[in-house]
Design a binder for these strands. Structure first.
Lengths: 213, 213
DNA sequence: CGGCATCCTCTTTGATACTG
DNA sequence: CAGTATCAAAGAGGATGCCG
């Protein structure tokens, strides 16, 4: 990217991460941790492969990505986010929170990946009963399954399935999001086709009732 | 900007403000409030005038800017930031804080405008003595003069001069920044050419000693 | 298959000149 | 003051080829 040539910390930050796709690459690396090239490509639908390779190299040069030629059994290149990249998390969180306003409907053709639930979950869910038992919620969409684990006051997410989820939400991501953000009620999302099975009362424990969004 | 086509709030945010120059236009509007076209152009050195006019129109369409054809005596168009634009402030703050790491030296040819001090001042200064008397610090660089006003626990900045500043800092912005961020001492910045006059002890009151940057 | 590089087309940006 | 108009240069997108 061509520098803005401004002695301003916002402009300097954008000199490094303001290029198209760059912040989304950081998003994938922060959500998923070290990724293979193919993981990144899958998490960034629409990116041209030459652009991805260019951006990775630029991020390496800027010290935001570290490349590791992993030996067998991995036998592939892993791209790690560095500390400087992790320090961008507050900026990504702030942008993501601001962008929630555009998520009420899903544009035709918009791609979706389960891991993108990570930020919204962190915005909208909290453990309302830190002393309660550990519970898990499985999210099933057209993308990979994902699990929200609530335990001891902490809310975590990961790709994968739960062995015995306490609650399963199955359907369109925008319905799951409407439910988690309390924009729609259980009755409403069910009417729109979301399949809910398990301990519905669990939602009371995790829904944050004080989000400024 | 071409949409990323991803159902992710970060991608959606970048669909709106991810274009080159867009966040910097928001920066100017948030720092200065309603601006004339010429103010924006002056605060965005390097932008092509056709791009500025394009971006303003896009921001208007997105509901981040409101145009006002001010009647006399102003007799010019004013561009106001909307509430949605103001809600981007946390994102700009986070990016600006991250970008402070690139401010230790000033690249050759980097432009500077006094109002860009606003965010760094908010990062690094605080009123350590909320019950103390109101004081003001005037910053004099090659750009317009600027005033930091400390009073009742609050720190404010504005373009302009103070009638009787308690402290004047005059010299290169990177030296002022090094002083405010406590990267260099008074003795060091003075040795590098910063002219300091007035109540130096005042710095003790305002330097935040606990910034995570 | 994973990690690119090349080629080509199309879009966006930048620089400058000009206008009501 | 607040833009348009024009044109060259850079960047993005898409397809495909290559090599371990």
């Amino acid at each position: 990217m061509r520098s803005y040539g401004e002695y301003c910390s916002i402009a300097k930050a954008l000199d490094v991460v303001g290029d198209r796709w760059t912040l989304l690459i950081i998003r994938e690396l922060l959500i998923r941790g070290a990724c293979r090239y193919t993981d990144l490509k899958n998490g960034l639908p629409g990116i041209a492969t030459n652009l991805l390779s260019d951006r990775i190299r630029e991020l390496e040069a800027a010290g935001l990505v570290q490349r590791e030629d992993a030996p067998p059994p991995v036998a592939t290149t892993l791209f790690h986010p560095t500390g400087a990249a992790r320090e961008l998390e507050p900026a990504l969180r702030a942008l993501g929170l601001w962008g929630v306003r555009f998520m009420t409907s899903r544009a035709d053709g918009d791609e979706f990946r389960s891991q993108w639930f990570t930020y919204p979950v962190s915005f909208f869910l909290q453990d309302g009963d830190p002393d309660g038992p550990p519970v898990s919620i499985e999210l099933q969409t057209a993308s990979d399954p994902m699990v929200i684990e609530i335990s001891g006051g902490e809310v975590h997410t990961r790709l994968g399935t739960a062995t015995a989820p306490d609650l399963i939400l199955r359907g369109e991501p925008q319905l799951i999001l409407a439910l988690l953000s309390a924009k729609l009620t259980v009755a409403e999302v069910t009417a729109h086709g979301l399949e809910i099975s398990g301990d519905i009362g669990l939602l009371e424990r995790v829904l944050a009732h004080d989000v400024a969004a």
